[in-house]
Design a protein around this nucleic acid. Structure first.
Length: 207
DNA sequence: TGCACGATGAAC
DNA sequence: TTCATCGTGCAC
C-alpha cells in the first residue's frame, strides 16, 4: 500500500504507537514536491518526517521550514551552480539533500520543483512524535534526533525507510513568516520572508 | 594542492 | 562572542 492512497507504514501501523489509537499515515507523492518551493515549504508544516533506522521508526512533526528558491536565490547552495554537492538540488523532486555544516552538524532538505530547477526546502525543526531522543529545534538538532547523516544524501523520499507523510489528522494552524536564519551574506535575499513555522508551536527554533 | 568559509549549536 | 571541525568550491 505504500505510495498509494491510504498507504500505511509497516503493514498498517508503526512499531511504536500510542495505546489510544492506531496511527495511519499517507506518504507524500512525487507530485507534492514537484510544485512551487514556497508552497511546498508551507505545506510541509504539520507533515510527519519518518525514518526507519536499525529497526527503529523515528517520527517527527515538521513545524519549521525554509525555502531556497534556486540559483537566483543568493542564499541557496544552488547559486554556486551545478557542482558535485549541489547536483542533488538540481535533481528530480522528492529526494533528500543532506549536507554537513561547520564540520559538525547535518542539515536536511527536500528537493522541490522539476529536475534542473535547483530548489529545496530546509527542515529546521520538528515536534517529537515517536522514538525521538534529545532536542529537535534547529536543523542540526533535528538531524541528530532523527539519525539523519550524509549517508541519506540523495535518498529518494518515496522509499520505504525515509519519507514524509500526511498525518491522519492535520489541525488548522496559523503559519508565521520570518527571514531565513544565518544567511546575512545574501544581501536582499536574506531579508525575504522565506522561513515558515507553525504559530505558537514550542518546538520552533527561533521566533 | 592549499585554503577560506559556512543554511549550527554550545560554551563562556 | 568564540569555537569545534570538515566537506566544498575555487584560487593558484
Amino acid at each position: 500500500m505504500i505510495g498509494g492512497a491510504g498507504a500505511t507504514v509497516n503493514g498498517g501501523s508503526f512499531p511504536f504507537r500510542p495505546l489510544c489509537y492506531r496511527r495511519r499515515v499517507q506518504k507524500l507523492p512525487r507530485s507534492f514536491y514537484d510544485r512551487d518551493t514556497i508552497v511546498v515549504a508551507r505545506e510541509l508544516l504539520g507533515k510527519l518526517l519518518v525514518h526507519v533506522s536499525r529497526g527503529v521508526t523515528r517520527i517527527g512533526r515538521i513545524v519549521e521550514t525554509e525555502a531556497y528558491l534556486g540559483p537566483h536565490d543568493l542564499a541557496s547552495h544552488s547559486s554556486k551552480g551545478r557542482t558535485q554537492r549541489t547536483e542533488i538540488m538540481f535533481g528530480p523532486p522528492g529526494h533528500a539533500y543532506v549536507y554537513l555544516i561547520y564540520g559538525v552538524h547535518h542539515c536536511m532538505n527536500v528537493v522541490t520543483e522539476r529536475a534542473g530547477h535547483g530548489s529545496a526546502v530546509l527542515l529546521r525543526a520538528i515536534e517529537p512524535v515517536a522514538n525521538i531522543n534529545g532536542r529537535t529545534s534547529g536543523p542540526g538538532l533535528l538531524c541528530r534526533a532523527m539519525k539523519i547523516d550524509l549517508r541519506l544524501n540523495g535518498h529518494d523520499l518515496l522509499g520505504e525507510d525515509f519519507f514524509v507523510a500526511r498525518p491522519d489528522h492535520e489541525p488548522v494552524v496559523r503559519i508565521k513568516k520570518r527571514p531565513r536564519v544565518g544567511v546575512d551574506y545574501a544581501g536582499a535575499w536574506a531579508r525575504r520572508h522565506l522561513r515558515f513555522y507553525l504559530a505558537g508551536n514550542p518546538f520552533v527554533s527561533r521566533l
